[in-house]
Simulated scan of single mutants.
Amino acid sequence: MLNGLGGLGDMAKMMKTAQEMQGKMTQLQDDLANISVTGESGAGLVTATANAKGVLTGLNIDASIFDPNEKEVVEDLILAAIKDAQAKAADRSASEMKALQQSLGLPTDMKLPF
């Protein structure tokens, strides 16, 4: 395309690849907002749902754990479920990023800006 202009042809190809990568990363960010993961604690008595960006989107608490004398236990179960959901969200996000990097022919251990 740009024959005879030295490395400008390679530069144009690099710019096109960079634009493609930026588009795919933007799409991935949108996709992560739509992927749900669920964390749980207390053998499922408390479940927390988050998107793959780690934003909490739902919380479900089994009514059987509501005992005024067990307030700290309930609070601990809620926190544990939220932390579990956030950990799963981080794992899913990393997995999606790794898949994107592989599809672009990039090393999977390369740190990208998000």
Score class of each variant (00 low, 15 high):
5 L>Q: 08
78 I>F: 07
56 L>N: 12
84 D>G: 11
95 S>L: 05
6 G>K: 05
113 P>R: 01
21 M>N: 10
49 T>I: 06
91 D>G: 06
75 E>Y: 01
58 G>H: 13
78 I>P: 07
38 T>G: 02
82 I>P: 07
59 L>I: 14
85 A>N: 09
23 G>F: 07
27 Q>I: 00
82 I>H: 09
2 L>N: 15
8 L>W: 11
60 N>K: 15
17 T>V: 04
80 A>V: 01
102 Q>S: 09
39 G>V: 05
103 S>T: 00
83 K>D: 00
63 A>N: 11
109 D>Q: 10
9 G>V: 08
21 M>C: 07
52 A>F: 06
106 L>Q: 01
14 M>K: 11
103 S>M: 00
6 G>Q: 09
22 Q>E: 09
30 D>F: 03
5 L>W: 12
84 D>V: 10
62 D>H: 13
46 V>G: 08
102 Q>K: 06
89 A>T: 02
32 L>I: 08
25 M>W: 06
108 T>I: 11
75 E>S: 12
53 K>F: 02
111 K>P: 00
64 S>K: 15
46 V>Q: 04
108 T>M: 04
110 M>R: 12
3 N>Y: 12
48 A>T: 07
72 E>R: 03
90 A>H: 04
92 R>Q: 12
15 M>W: 02
57 T>Q: 15
59 L>C: 10
25 M>V: 04
65 I>H: 08
103 S>W: 01
98 K>M: 04
28 L>I: 08
37 V>S: 10
29 Q>Y: 08
47 T>W: 01
65 I>T: 11
44 G>E: 14
95 S>I: 00
11 M>P: 02
53 K>I: 02
6 G>R: 05
74 V>G: 02
35 I>C: 08
34 N>Q: 15
53 K>R: 14
14 M>G: 10
62 D>G: 09
3 N>V: 07
83 K>W: 03
90 A>Y: 10
66 F>Y: 13
54 G>K: 14
9 G>H: 08
107 P>D: 10
74 V>Q: 06
35 I>G: 07
62 D>I: 05
16 K>I: 01
11 M>D: 07
46 V>D: 04
1 M>P: 11
65 I>Y: 07
86 Q>P: 01
62 D>A: 14
